[in-house]
């Protein structure tokens, strides 16, 4: 285990941290150029989301009644929707909703799951038994259905969508971190610290938790893509962030509501945006996983 999750260097200074981070990125590019390339695309999408207000050609919510449901043209590269809103601007703004939800839900869900898993693995016993049953119950729902039910019960909105998706991520964090902790608990340096009389808190957070960082990172990055798809599906089913906000799922849902024959540009572009984003984050996640945990290379 120690070989797989290398120990942190003692007392890292800010400068040495920055240098090792840079070295890490350099190594990523050399060892996994394909993933690194998609990582750059993911970074570009994040940049696009951050810079959305500056780079959009039109206001995403403003309708122009002179150009309603127009196919792509020089003024509107991606066309306009039924009430004359610019599709390109809406797709760009959609990345904001998508990424906010994905990062928020994955960070929240995986962190709660990881802490829960840490407690389960460390304390064991009845608490662990009860927790495992509870996690099993949570996993008895297909992800999207659980997220739909929670989002619907809480009512639509950015916060509720994040919570709904985060809850579906908890079992994964819980399971993985628990098994890591179970094996770490018996390792000699932890035993030594326990022998020296370290408190539970110190053992858990000072000695065990740092070794969980690598699996946590792997979990978080591999789940970003799933979270984006669930967010889009929720929007498509009408339980996501409520309509006027431009999200990719809402745009596809609007296209379907537009009539018997939805205009092709309203269907094509939001879907392409979802696909490229999910692809980029999935491949970035694969690369990070291969880098941090060579044992898993090439498996699912």
């Amino acid at each position: 285990m120690t070989a797989i999750f290398p120990a942190q260097p003692a007392l890292p200074t800010t400068a040495s941290r920055a240098r090792s981070a840079l070295r890490g990125i350099g190594m990523f590019f050399r060892r996994a150029p394909f993933s690194a390339f998609w990582g750059c695309i993911a970074a570009a999408i994040v940049a696009m989301a951050v810079a959305a207000p500056v780079i959009v050609p039109y206001e995403p919510l403003k309708s122009d009644f002179r150009s309603m449901q127009k196919p792509p043209s020089e003024q509107h590269w991606f066309g306009t929707d039924q009430i004359g809103r610019d599709t390109l601007s809406r797709v760009i703004y959609g990345s904001r909703a998508s990424l906010t939800v994905a990062f928020g839900a994955v960070l929240f869900g995986t962190t709660v799951g990881a802490l829960w898993g840490l407690a389960c693995g460390y304390f064991g016993g009845r608490f662990d038994m009860a927790s495992q049953r509870l996690i099993e119950f949570l996993q008895s729902f297909p992800d999207l259905i659980l997220a739909m039910a929670i989002a619907m019960a809480l009512g639509g909105g950015l916060g509720t969508v994040i919570v709904a998706i985060a809850i579906t991520r908890i079992p994964f964090g819980g399971r993985v971190i628990r098994s890591v902790v179970l094996s770490l608990k018996e390792i000699q340096y932890v035993e030594a610290a326990r022998g020296l009389g370290a408190s539970h808190k110190r053992l858990m957070f000072r000695h065990i938790l740092p070794q969980c960082v690598a699996p946590y990172m792997i979990l978080a990055t591999t789940h970003l893509g799933v979270a984006i798809v669930i967010e889009a599906s929720l929007g498509f089913l009408g339980v996501g962030i409520p309509p006027p906000s431009p999200t990719w799922g809402n745009m596809l849902s609007d296209a379907l509501n537009a009539g018997l024959v939805p205009p092709w540009w309203l269907v094509l572009f939001p879907g392409v945006a979802i696909t490229i984003t999910v692809l980029a984050f999935n491949l970035l996640g694969d690369g990070i996983r291969d880098l941090l945990d060579p044992r898993l290379r090439g498996s699912v």
């Binding site: 893509g225 798809v229 889009a232 599906s233 498509f236 596809l252 296209a255 379907l256 939805p262 269907v267 939001p270 879907g271 979802i274 696909t275 999910v278 692809l279 999935n282």
Partner: peptide, 9 residues
């Protein structure tokens, strides 16, 4: 990566 419902559409 491709969402199934979009392919369906």
């Amino acid at each position: 990566a491709v969402p199934g419902f979009w392919v369906g559409m």
